[in-house]
Each structure stands twice: as structure tokens, then as C-alpha cells.
Lab assay of single mutants.
Amino acid sequence: MDGTRTSLDIEEYSDTEVQKNQVLTLEEWQDKWVNGKTAFHQEQGHQLLKKHLDTFLKGKSGLRVFFPLCGKAVEMKWFADRGHSVVGVEISELGIQEFFTEQNLSYSEEPITEIPGTKVFKSSSGNISLYCCSIFDLPRTNIGKFDMIWDRGALVAINPGDRKCYADTMFSLLGKKFQYLLCVLSYDPTKHPGPPFYVPHAEIERLFGKICNIRCLEKVDAFEERHKSWGIDCLFEKLYLLTEK
């Protein structure tokens, strides 16, 4: 054995408090879109979701699917093309516009009456609605409950000090017999300040354990050449399924 860690023996890093005071403002996230600093976007979609999607959907149609901090995630069109209703929230209007443009979807925009100064973008087909606002303002819009949440790049982007508020927001959107698919990253948080932030299993239990059954479905090596600039040499991604207790 050469000592290389595999996707099945990932350790939890003990120094989980080192990132707790890290803060990125909404304006800084918007600047990332304006300046093209969106390496977190996956042009081909998320491979773990693609692998498990049909198993999760079980042939159902007409589900309501929520994408927190959606950006221009191509997976939104995957669900819409399968007959589901997609709702996303994203602070960057540019990111939302790029989604519709890159997916060749016509759309309209209208003000969100409950949140002055914000807009919702709706596909002409009517099954994709993307709200351009802070996720913490979203419950004011009465958008209803969801059958499924796809959380990739959301919890790991939320400032650590806001995670409890974020989890409570997610709980307010969950319908009966929900499936909450959650991706988190595992790396040494003493070497990279984030975002994306390190979210250990214990944190998921703390945030969601009282209401959800929590199961880790898969762990994969997600390290890429660009991650060397973070000062790390190891990065794993974990896919969790959260269901109603």
C-alpha cells in the first residue's frame, strides 16, 4: 500500500471551527459572476446526480424540485425535460440570464411583489422559475412545498455562521416524503479558508438530524488541478440523501 486515501476511508478533519467566522457578502458573489470567477459551475452537470437520477425519480412526473443557490445549473433542465417543475433561487441576475441563454430557453421576467426590487424569471414553458433574491428572503414569497431539493454548491457556499438559518429555510420548503439530495466537500479547512466551505458529517447531523434521516450514498475523489491553488492536495465530495423521519 502506498498510503493513498480512497473514497471509502475519508477521515473527518478535527479543526472544524477554523472557518466559522468566514463571510462572503452577496455583493462579492455577484462580483464573481461579473468577473467570470465561476469555476464552481459544471458545464456537463453533476455526474453523481446523473448516475442516481432515475433511481431517485422512480419514474414519477410532476414533482416540484428546488435548487438553492442555483446559478446556471444545467441540471435544472434535466428535471424540466422529465416533466418536473423547477424552482431556483440565485442572487446573480447575470447567472440566471446565462442559464436561459445557454439552454436556449425563452423566458419572461416579473417583479417579486413580496420582495421589493427583486425579480423572478420564468421559462415560456412555465416549468422553470428562478427567483433573483437572497435565499433568506425566499420564504416571504409563499412558493409552496417541494418534493425534492438538489443542494450542490449551496450549503458549502453559505457562510458558516448562517447555516442554521439556511437549514431552517430548507425545512420550511420541504413537503411530505421529501428527498433532499446534498453534496458537501471534505478537505483540510486549515489550508483553505473557503468558500466552498468544509462541511463535516457531524455538521450535517447537527443541522438536519432532528428532522431528517441522513444517509451518505457515495464518496468520490473530486480533486482537480485547479484545487492546488487552494493549498490542498486532497478533496473529496460526498452525496447524501436526507429523508423524512
Rank of each mutant, 00 (worst) to 15 (best):
K228E: 12
V18E: 15
E205A: 13
G59I: 06
K219S: 15
E98A: 06
T6N: 14
V89K: 00
K191C: 12
E244P: 13
H41Y: 07
G71P: 05
E218V: 07
P116T: 07
T4M: 14
L138E: 04
F66S: 01
I158V: 15
Y187A: 04
K37D: 07
G144S: 10
Q42M: 14
F66V: 01
F66G: 01
L24Q: 03
V220M: 14
Y180E: 00
Y166N: 00
S186M: 07
Q179G: 07
C183Q: 03
T190D: 04
S106Q: 10
D162R: 08
D15G: 08
K245Q: 09
S129P: 00
V89S: 06
D162E: 13
Y13W: 11
E17L: 10
E203I: 14
R152V: 13
R163T: 09
K32S: 09
E110T: 12
V199D: 00
L49D: 03
L174G: 04
Y166T: 00
G231D: 14
P196R: 05
R226E: 15
Q47V: 15
M1W: 11
I214E: 04
L8Y: 07
H84T: 05
T101I: 13
Y166A: 00
K228A: 09
N104C: 13
E205V: 12
L105A: 03
E109V: 08
E224I: 10
Q44D: 13
E43T: 03
G62K: 11
D9S: 05
I158G: 00
N127E: 12
V156R: 03
F223Q: 01
H201V: 15
F136W: 11
A39R: 09
S124L: 10
M1P: 15
P193R: 09
V18S: 10
V74I: 15
Q19S: 06
G62S: 10
S186L: 10
G83K: 02
L181G: 07
M76W: 03
C234A: 15
G36I: 08
W78L: 06
K72C: 03
G71F: 03
G3Y: 07
T118L: 06
G59E: 14
E205Y: 01
V86S: 02
F79T: 04
E110P: 01
Y240W: 06
T190Y: 10
E203A: 09
E17T: 06
D9G: 12
C70V: 05
G83R: 03
E244G: 11
N142C: 14
V89P: 01
C212V: 10
V23S: 12
T16F: 13
D2Y: 09
G153T: 07
E109G: 09
D188K: 08
L69D: 03
A157Y: 05
A157N: 09
E237L: 09
L239P: 03
F236T: 06
K228L: 13
N142P: 13
D31Q: 02
D2F: 06
G161N: 14
L49R: 02
H46N: 15
F56H: 07
D81Q: 09
Y131L: 14
L239A: 04
A80S: 11
D31K: 11
I214A: 07
V23M: 12
G175N: 10
K176W: 07
H84D: 03
F136G: 03
R226A: 14
E109A: 14
K51D: 01
R215V: 05
K77G: 08
G71T: 02
F100R: 00
V18W: 09
Y131A: 01
K77S: 07
H192A: 07
L69V: 05
E110G: 07
K145Q: 09
L239S: 06
D81E: 12
K77C: 15
F66T: 00
H52D: 12
F236N: 15
K32R: 11
F66H: 02
E218P: 03
D221Y: 06
E12R: 10
F100E: 00
K245E: 11
V86W: 00
M148S: 03
P139R: 12
L207K: 04
K245F: 14
K119C: 07
P189A: 13
E102V: 13
F208M: 12
L217K: 13
I91M: 05
G209V: 07
G126F: 07
C70R: 05
W29H: 09
Y107A: 03
S123Y: 05
Y13T: 13
V156D: 13
V220E: 13
E11G: 08
L182C: 09
L26G: 06
I214F: 02
N213C: 14
M148L: 14
E28P: 03
K119R: 07
L173D: 02
N104A: 11
H192R: 11
R215Y: 13
F236V: 15
H84W: 05
Y131G: 00
K177I: 06
E110M: 13
I112V: 11
I214W: 06
E43L: 10
K51A: 10
F208I: 02
D2K: 13
L235M: 15
Y240S: 01
P196F: 01
R206K: 15
S106T: 15
K191R: 08
H201A: 12
Y13G: 09
N35A: 14
F236P: 06
D162T: 08
L217V: 10
H201I: 01
S85E: 13
T113M: 14
Q30A: 11
I232A: 08
Y107G: 01
G45D: 03
K122P: 02
F223G: 09
A167C: 14
R140E: 10
L182P: 11
P196K: 02
R82W: 09
V23L: 13
K51E: 14
Y240A: 00
K20P: 09
I91D: 04
K60G: 07
P200L: 01
Q22F: 10
Q30H: 09
K119Q: 06
A167R: 11
W150A: 03
V184S: 14
E102M: 02
G62T: 13
K176I: 09
F40S: 06
E11W: 11
Q19T: 10
V184Q: 09
H52I: 12
L94T: 12
T243L: 09
G83T: 02
R152S: 09
L69T: 06
L181A: 13
G231Q: 15
L26H: 11
F146V: 05
M76N: 01
M170R: 00
S7P: 05
R82C: 08
V34M: 12
Y240E: 01
K51S: 10
F236R: 10
L241P: 00
D147A: 02
A202F: 15
K228D: 15
S129M: 06
L173V: 15
R226S: 11
E27H: 15
D54S: 13
L24V: 10
E203N: 08
F136A: 02
H201Y: 13
K177G: 13
F197S: 02
Q22W: 03
D233S: 14
E90D: 12
K228W: 10
I143M: 05
I232W: 08
P195M: 02
I232E: 04
K122T: 13
T25C: 05
Q179M: 11
C165M: 06
S61Q: 05
F67W: 01
L181K: 00
H201E: 12
G45P: 11
Y198R: 08
S14Q: 03
H46Y: 08
W230T: 12
F56P: 04
D168A: 11
S186D: 15
Y180A: 01
E114W: 05
H192M: 14
F146N: 02
F171D: 08
V65R: 00
L155M: 12
H227Y: 13
L241R: 04
V34F: 14
I149G: 00
A157D: 15
C133E: 00
E244A: 08
N142L: 06
K122L: 06
Q103I: 11
D9T: 11
K238M: 15
E224P: 02
D168K: 12
K238G: 10
S123W: 04
I135V: 08
T141Q: 11
G62F: 10
F67G: 00
F67L: 05
E114Y: 08
I158Y: 04
Q47E: 11
K119N: 03
T55C: 09
Q30M: 12
Y166I: 01
F56T: 08
I143G: 02
R82V: 07
K58V: 15
N142W: 08
K72T: 07
E11R: 10
N104R: 08
M76C: 03
T55D: 10
R226N: 11
E218W: 07
C212A: 15
R152I: 12
H41N: 07
E244Q: 14
G194P: 07
V34C: 05
I128V: 12
S85T: 03
E203L: 15
D54F: 04
F121R: 01
T6G: 08
L48I: 11
K32W: 11
W150S: 01
D9H: 10
P193W: 03
T101L: 06
V65Q: 00
Q97T: 09
G45H: 09
E27Y: 12
K77A: 12
H52M: 02
P111K: 08
M148Y: 13
K177D: 13
L182K: 00
V86N: 00
E244W: 08
Y198S: 04
L69K: 10
S106P: 12
H227N: 06
W230L: 06
K60R: 13
E75Y: 04
D221I: 01
P189Q: 10
F223C: 09
E109W: 13
G3P: 13
T38C: 09
Q103M: 10
L69M: 12
F208L: 02
G71C: 03
T38E: 06
